[in-house]
Each structure stands twice: as structure tokens, then as C-alpha cells.
């Protein structure tokens, strides 16, 4: 899974590198950006906003709104990370879309090592792809011509199908989340729409809808605590 995500990320990163180069970012800035930001959607938002003459505050706000999804994602993995607050904050940096979904075990639990493993593979691929894009600058439509822009949504779909299998609560919440995202994206930036869509998870407050895996965890944790 990590390798597949890394391959998809590599291709996307090549397009980012090429796009940034054509927008006058030079050679070093796109590579450093991929190294320290490591978020395709935020980087594209940043580059697009700067290219549109929106200024630094607008560009930073656009990227920040898109990365707002890392807040609920970080909350979700918090329980499965280790150590004190600082170490957990550092371990939380492994959260990126692909790794987060690949590490999800179901019922709100995450495989910490899978999270790290998937990120460790994707990060260098993302930076290397950017570097290649900066140097080679392939035509913008190459990714689309090869149908490679399908790879990320396809991964999300496949993982969603797995999540929905056998959980009525997950199906209801996912349907509501999709509807909220679909409506919100008309009015607000993509990142904010995703944050708003995460409100659908509040369905988990309804007693009868708590997924089976979580009820099992609750019983186990109660036993351990006692």
C-alpha cells in the first residue's frame, strides 16, 4: 500500500515541481516546500494563489484551510501514538492522507507502525518527484493523458469501500459526510469543506450507531483500567 501511494505521490509531485518552476519559483524553493510542507493539495493551493497575485496572506490562508483536515486526523490517531506530549506531536507529523487511511484498522484505531512506514516511503518519493519535475518540467497534460490523476481518488474510494463493508454506522456517516462536502465545496475552500464534512462523524454520539470495533475497545479498556 505504501509503495502504491508513493508511486502515485511521485507522479503528482513531478507535476507540482514542473508547475512551480513555470511560475518562477526557481529550483530550490519547490524542493524545500515539498520537504517541509509535504502536502500536495496545500502546495498546489499555495502555488496557484501566489501565481494569481493573491499575496502571501491569501496564499498561506488557502494552504492552511486545505491542511485544516489534519486537525481531526491528528485527533483520531492521538490514542495510538506513544510517549509524552512532545514525542506525540512529532509522531503526529507522520499523518498525511494516504498514510492515515492506510494505517486505519477500523473502529477508530490506527496501526502506528503502518502510519510511519507509509509516510517514510511517501516522503522521499514526494521530494524526489518534485526535484524531477523542477529539472525535467514535463508537459502539464502528461499526467492526465495517462489517466494518472485517477490514482489518488481511486485509493480513497478503495479504502472507503473497505471501511463501509459491514458497518451500518460507517455507511450512514460517510453518506452524510459526502453530502456535506458536496454542498460546502460550492461556498467555501476545499479544506474548509472537508473540515465541515467531518461534522458527520458526530453521528457516532448516537448510542446505537457506535461501531462494533469501538464497543469492543471500550470493553477492553474498561477491563484494563479496572
Amino acid at each position: 500500500m505504501g509503495t502504491g501511494l508513493a508511486a502515485a505521490g511521485f507522479v503528482l509531485a513531478v507535476t507540482f515541481g514542473a508547475f512551480a518552476r513555470t511560475e518562477g519559483w526557481g529550483v530550490l524553493a519547490p524542493i524545500v516546500c515539498s520537504l517541509v510542507v509535504f502536502s500536495g493539495s496545500a502546495q498546489f493551493a499555495l502555488a496557484t494563489a501566489l501565481a494569481g497575485g493573491g499575496g502571501v496572506p491569501t496564499a498561506v490562508a488557502a494552504a492552511a484551510l486545505i491542511n485544516g483536515r489534519f486537525l481531526p486526523m491528528g485527533v483520531a490517531v492521538a490514542k495510538d501514538l506513544r510517549g509524552g506530549r512532545i514525542r506525540r506531536a512529532l509522531e503526529g507529523q507522520a499523518v498525511v492522507d494516504g498514510s492515515w487511511v492506510a494505517a486505519h484498522l477500523g473502529g477508530g484505531r490506527f496501526d502506528r507502525y503502518k502510519l510511519f512506514g507509509a509516510t517514510v516511503v511517501q516522503w522521499p518519493a514526494w521530494v524526489a518527484g518534485t526535484a524531477l519535475g523542477v529539472v525535467v518540467a514535463p508537459p502539464e497534460n502528461l499526467v492526465e493523458s495517462l489517466g494518472l490523476d485517477l490514482v489518488f481518488p481511486a485509493f480513497f474510494l478503495l479504502l472507503l469501500l473497505d471501511e463501509l463493508r459491514g458497518s451500518r454506522a460507517a455507511r450512514g456517516a460517510a453518506a452524510l459526510g459526502a453530502c456535506l462536502a458536496a454542498a460546502l465545496v460550492v461556498w467555501v475552500p476545499v479544506g474548509l469543506a472537508l473540515l465541515g464534512a467531518s461534522a458527520a462523524a458526530l453521528l457516532g454520539l448516537r448510542k446505537g450507531l457506535i461501531p462494533r470495533d469501538t464497543r469492543r475497545d471500550t470493553k477492553r479498556d474498561t477491563k484494563e483500567a479496572s
Partner: peptide, 11 residues
Amino acid sequence: IALLAPVLLAG
């Protein structure tokens, strides 16, 4: 939290 994954994936 358990429902965040399917919700965010769908989103």
C-alpha cells in the same frame, strides 16, 4: 473518532 475515517474518506 471511529467514524472520522469513513467520513473524511468520503469527503
